[in-house]
């Protein structure tokens, strides 16, 4: 049974991360392919159960890709974190070659965070539509969403509609205690705008599509 300290001894490029549940290591981006291959072939971590990312907002490095491996024989989890070297155009090597499961998870990561995976066979959006201009899980993206054109240009032309932000921005909702019942519907704390009077636009730079 390999625990995190043993990994650390065998692979000097790893560093340990503080964790409460399963062992967790931090691996530099340029060694991750080599390490994950060893994990699968030598240490028996034969399943990549999850791959995701965390946006640390103001910190640098800003984006961290986190993978969870499971050994189907020994029933052990291992968390491998990889920091994306650059904050502006984050890129890490793709694991899709080693674990086909990574294919879709990496596409989702790209879709939600804009992290590019080098040598990915088919890196395109998976949950949002192909022409969507933003990366929704980045911290600067507002909960309500940002006005964007409809995915289908033909329908947009005929109907003149757009994808509009949800009228619910502002976090935990408040309900005024006074007044008529119809007035005391829970509403957003931010009352500087209503559905009739739109919210003053906040400029968010449109992410460049590569």
């Amino acid at each position: 049974m390999q625990t995190a300290p043993e990994f650390l001894r065998n692979y000097d490029f790893l560093s340990e991360r503080e964790t409460g549940d399963c062992p967790s290591v931090l691996c530099p981006a340029d060694r991750v392919i080599e390490f994950v291959k060893e994990l699968r072939d030598v240490h028996g971590y034969d399943m990549l159960v999850d791959l995701t990312a965390v946006d640390w907002d103001k910190e640098s490095p800003r984006f961290m890709v986190i993978c969870h491996f499971l050994s189907s024989q020994k029933h052990l989890y291992l968390r491998v974190a990889v920091n994306c070297p650059e904050d502006e155009s984050p890129e890490v090597p793709s694991l899709a070659e080693i674990f086909p499961a990574a294919d879709w998870h990496e596409r989702e990561c790209f879709d939600m965070f804009g992290i590019r995976f080098k040598d990915h066979p088919n890196l395109k959006r998976i949950l949002m539509w192909d022409d969507y201009p933003y990366y929704p899980l980045r911290k600067e993206f507002p909960l309500a969403g940002i006005e964007t054109p409809l995915p289908s240009a033909e329908i947009a032309e005929v109907t003149g509609t757009k994808v509009k932000p949800a009228p619910m921005m502002g976090g935990p909702f408040v309900a005024p205690a006074e007044g008529h019942v119809s007035e005391s519907e829970p509403r957003a704390r931010d009352e500087s705008w209503t559905e009739d009077e739109p919210k003053p636009a906040k400029k968010i730079p449109e992410t460049k599509r590569q």
Partner: peptide, 15 residues
């Protein structure tokens, strides 16, 4: 896929 995407992970960060 993605036709039923509601952004649950984004929503979770705000409640």
């Amino acid at each position: 896929i993605g036709y039923l995407h509601r952004g649950d992970e984004k929503i979770a960060e705000s409640m």
